[in-house]
């Protein structure tokens, strides 16, 4: 079997994905692409939990998940792979258990630490697509740099209060995270106001973007930043562009 001749879907896979292989432009070929793909999600919290769950349900074959620490009560309004009975235990262990309950065919790479300068190159190398769900700009910028260097697409998801935004970045072709925000914002705080329904909403869009990129389906949200304000249900699509002299991607593909 070669990359051009992927192994056919099993009977179980045909049964589980029956409702999506009939989507025009996707089909069994798209399902095979998902099964043979690897996605890095960092972290697996309010955003990442839902991204991981949707991608596990959709049949992405390998998930590389990075999230440190133990489950706290304040995780439970939005981190849907964490459970009350597991309070005080490893977040990533809870994530692994919940995802395996849903999809035992998954190839899970669960790392009990957050993305950092030491592990980022290896983690990004294990993935075909990166979904950035991390709260701190230090780890987001590290992931952005590694993705640019390795030419890996990144789906950028973010939320605050009742607002959210998302864009899909292709190194060498589109803006990267540092094109939009060239510096770490000094006023940013680790803990901020948000509903789980807001992080879940943008997470579903992020999962769909990853599926589209992997399966070459539809038109990814490249060169555009989609913003949403769920307070009044307004959305906006803003044209974005690479920043001349960007420290992260300025020399790539230009």
């Amino acid at each position: 079997m070669t990359a051009d001749d992927p192994r056919p879907l099993s009977d179980d896979e045909r049964a589980v994905y029956a409702w999506q292989v009939t989507v025009p432009g996707f089909g069994e070929v798209g399902q095979q692409k998902l099964r043979d793909a690897s996605v890095l999600i960092s972290r697996v919290g309010g955003l990442g939990s839902v991204v991981a769950y949707e991608l596990a349900a959709a049949g992405v074959g390998r998930l590389v998940l990075a999230h440190g620490g133990d489950i706290k009560k304040s995780d439970l309004n939005r981190q849907l792979l964490m459970t009350w009975d597991a309070l005080g235990t490893s977040r990533i262990a809870s994530v692994e258990r919940r995802l395996r309950d849903l999809n035992p065919r998954l190839d899970l790479h669960c790392i009990a630490e957050n993305v950092n300068d030491e592990n980022v190159t290896d983690l990004v190398a294990r993935a075909d697509v990166v979904v950035d769900c991390a709260p701190l700009f230090e780890e987001r910028f590290a992931m952005n740099r590694a993705a640019v260097q390795q030419g890996k697409p990144v789906v950028e998801c973010a939320m605050y209060e009742l607002q959210a935004q998302i864009t899909t970045m292709i190194p060498g072709r589109t803006a990267c995270l540092a094109c939009l925000h060239p510096e770490i914002p000094p006023a940013w705080k680790r803990e901020f106001p948000v509903f789980g329904a807001v992080s879940g909403a943008v997470a579903c869009l992020g999962a769909m973007e990853a599926i589209k990129v992997i399966a070459d389906l539809g038109t990814p949200l490249t060169d555009r930043l989609l913003t949403m304000d769920l307070r009044d249900m307004t959305t906006r699509t803003i044209r974005i562009a690479r920043r001349v002299g960007c420290e992260a991607c300025g020399g790539v593909g230009q």
């Binding site: 955003l47 990442g48 950035d132 769900c133 987001r140 914002p185 940013w188 803990e191 901020f192």
Partner: peptide, 10 residues
């Protein structure tokens, strides 16, 4: 004009 401070996941 739309003016944004950066936001994140979490």
């Amino acid at each position: 004009l739309v003016v944004m401070t950066p936001i994140s996941g979490g």
